[in-house]
């Protein structure tokens, strides 16, 4: 396409309109000027509807995710970086090395081009920092009122190292529960920007790509790791309850071992929330065999994303699958999972 006949996209004041999704010149320009620039790789520049890659030998994993977070920009991230981190993490939780991502954008008519550019750049940076390229994508535009700004849908593929078979039903009584850091950061950061909640805090979302951390853990613990999971919507409570049910066990957790940043605790106090139920986007829970627990924990602490890693409890026999917790106060309670996220559209 000859550039001299094309007006540059007005990133300052311009908005996405229906022509940008219509498959014609306008859409091509949008894709080139915003997405190709942001992701900056040959796959996308080739401009095909698909991208090819060689399949390495071994077992592969594939994942898909939808991102509907509101607001789109929050302290510590945005829907774009969140999409990259989240998809990579889903792959990493299998112990797999993430290889490629796809990203599909559903944009509402009227969405500011400047915001789209910011989000795309943020995704590009996150992708490059993680060394996991976005190799194919799609763009659709829907009428005003039909998409609340922007929805992003992703998919990702990765390769599992030979011999690893993390599985949700693999945890056994006696296994150790490890967590890679503080809980509740992401949910509080997003909530702080919700208009109707109106509180100010400096908490940043913990949104981060965890595949490097996972690789370190796998090197230290190998098949002694039973399962990894990132506690996103529903928080640590949901994750532990899911695993308890899937592995037919219970858990005993020590509240004193949990790490909650003071500002997160204070925000939860204001809102009447329990940090255990608040979403995280840069943390993982690992259930590991007791004999590898020390080694895995040390490997986690050596990584910047796991510096505050801690052992928080262990798995027990329990046909009722309770997650029991010894409170800091000294009494016992169970950690239940709520029937739904306390606030919608947290990721």
């Amino acid at each position: 396409m000859s550039k001299s006949y094309r007006r540059k996209l007005d990133l300052k004041n311009g908005r996405v309109d229906l022509s940008h999704g219509a498959g014609g010149r306008a859409m091509a320009q949008l894709i080139e000027d915003i997405f190709h620039n942001a992701f900056d790789n040959d796959w996308l520049r080739a401009g095909n509807d698909q991208s090819a890659f060689d399949v390495p030998a071994g077992r592969m994993v594939m994942t898909t995710d939808g991102y509907v977070v509101s607001p789109l920009f929050f302290p510590g991230g945005d829907i774009g970086s969140l999409a990259v981190h989240g998809t990579i993490n889903d792959i990493a939780m299998a112990g797999a090395k993430p290889l490629y991502l796809s990203a599909s954008f559903i944009i509402e008519e009227g969405f500011p081009l400047g915001d789209l550019d910011r989000i795309a750049r943020s995704m590009g940076e996150a992708s490059r920092a993680a060394a996991v390229p976005v190799i194919t994508g799609d763009t659709k535009v829907v009428e005003r009122g039909k998409a609340d700004g922007l929805f992003i849908s992703t998919a990702g593929v990765g390769i599992v190292p030979a011999g690893l078979n993390f599985s949700s039903n693999a945890a056994r009584p006696g296994d150790v529960v490890l967590i890679s850091g503080s809980i509740g950061d992401h949910g509080v950061a997003v909530m702080s920007k919700r208009e109707n909640l109106d509180f100010e805090t400096e908490i940043l979302s913990d949104s981060a790509a965890l595949h490097g951390l996972v690789a370190d853990m796998v090197a230290a613990g190998g098949a002694g790791i039973r399962v990894l999971r990132d506690p996103t919507r529903g928080g640590l409570a949901a994750t532990l309850n899911e695993l308890a049910n899937q592995s037919d066990i219970g858990f005993q957790i020590d509240e004193d071992a949990l790490i909650v940043k003071p500002q997160v605790a204070a925000a939860c106090e204001f809102l009447g929330l329990d940090p255990l139920n608040v979403a995280n986007e840069g943390k993982l829970v690992a259930i590991v065999a007791p004999e590898v627990a020390e080694a895995v924990l040390a490997a986690m602490r050596a990584d910047p994303l796991g510096a505050e890693s801690a052992r928080i409890g262990f798995a027990v026999v329990d046909p009722q699958h309770f997650v029991e917790m010894r409170t800091s106060f000294g009494g016992g309670r169970i950690v239940d999972w709520l029937s739904g996220e306390q606030l919608p559209r947290i990721c």
């Binding site: 329990d274 010894r326 409170t327 106060f329 000294g330 009494g331 016992g332 309670r333």
Partner: peptide, 9 residues
Amino acid sequence: ISRYGLEDL
């Protein structure tokens, strides 16, 4: 009372 497991004490 419930959240802190006070009855245990």
